[in-house]
């Protein structure tokens, strides 16, 4: 992996991972309130799961890091996009906590795999990882959740995640032709966010009403 692409992947994967955490905090607060309590618990769970993920990743085959990273990001995309919907439909904090742990574990895989792919540049990878998390903390709760709402933010981050995941394996056959699709979907729902949020509101109220 080249130096620039390594840093870019590190930045965007970290941004997406922490974004999912903020999205889950928002979803958890919607089903049960108590934002401060939820925040304390979710931050602790997520941090712990990151650690578990990085421990589990020690077992991966180093020569296959690119494929495994792609699979991890694909799984993260699915959990991150479908997870909030499942939480809102189930109204269950147990399910929410399980999904947060899954997200944390998958996110924890990222850094060791990126280390394998970017030899002797651990410091740079870590630095861009932390910058990505910092940008997520500014953009997601303070900008996207306030401007385009929960549903559209989830789709936007999911599409960003999927775009970079596909670009990891773009050399393989037709995959490079798929890359623009999540980009376009993400842009579309950023502008036409009302409908997706309306759907989320409807799904949430289905359980209630």
């Amino acid at each position: 992996m080249s130096k620039i692409s390594g840093n870019v992947y590190s930045f965007f994967f970290a941004l997406c991972s922490l974004s999912y955490e903020f999205i889950f905090i928002k979803a958890a607060t919607a089903i049960q309130g108590g934002q401060i309590f939820k925040y304390n618990l979710i931050v602790s769970l997520f941090t712990f799961s990151l650690g578990v993920g990085s421990l589990l990743s020690q077992k991966v085959w180093k020569e296959n890091s690119l494929t495994i990273l792609f699979k991890v990001e694909l799984a993260l995309f699915l959990v991150g996009v479908l997870g909030p919907v499942i939480v809102l439909m189930s109204h269950s904090m147990i399910i929410c906590n399980v999904l947060i742990i899954m997200t944390g574990i998958l996110s924890g895989y990222e850094l060791p795999l990126l280390f394998n792919l970017n030899k002797n540049r651990d410091h740079e990878v870590i630095a861009w990882d932390y910058i990505g998390m910092f940008m997520a903390s500014l953009l997601i709760p303070l900008v996207t959740l306030k401007v385009i709402g929960l549903g559209a933010t989830t789709i936007l981050i999911g599409c960003l995640n999927l775009t970079f995941a596909l670009s990891l394996v773009r050399g393989k056959g037709f995959i490079k032709w798929l890359i623009p699709i999540p980009v376009l979907i993400g842009i579309f729902f950023s502008f036409y966010h009302f409908k997706i949020n309306e759907i989320l509101s409807y799904l949430y109220l289905q359980k209630v009403l």
Partner: peptide, 19 residues
């Protein structure tokens, strides 16, 4: 302003951990 301090606080905490 829970959202503001929770989000920016976490970002800065993690960033400075990296530093």
């Amino acid at each position: 302003e829970e959202t503001f301090f929770q989000s920016i606080g976490l970002g800065l905490y993690l960033l400075f951990m990296g530093i």
